[in-house]
């Protein structure tokens, strides 16, 4: 009976570990996707264009500075 107690304790701990780890990763993934979508919609770019945004922004800033 004592062995079953240890067995249950070990598996419950590992199940909790798996659940917390998976929950953390999935919620982080959803959260960052939502934040990115919100920022991109605010500045009016498509997600596919977002990677090329930084160089364009720098060019625009340079043009503004010369004006």
């Amino acid at each position: 009976m004592e062995g079953s107690y240890y067995l249950t304790t070990a598996y419950l701990g590992m199940i909790a570990g798996l659940a917390i780890w998976t929950w953390t990763v999935v919620t982080r993934s959803r959260s960052i996707e939502l934040r990115l979508a919100a920022v991109e919609s605010t500045i009016g770019v498509e997600a596919a264009d977002a990677d090329s945004l930084a160089p364009q922004s720098i060019d625009r800033a340079n043009v503004d500075a010369t004006d």
Binding site: E33, V39, A50, D51, A54, S57, R60, A61
Partner: peptide, 15 residues
């Protein structure tokens, strides 16, 4: 995605 978000936010701040 975190790196892309940081890049977009930086470009927004710069713009």
């Amino acid at each position: 995605l975190e790196q892309r978000l940081e890049q977009v936010q930086n470009s927004l701040d710069g713009g």
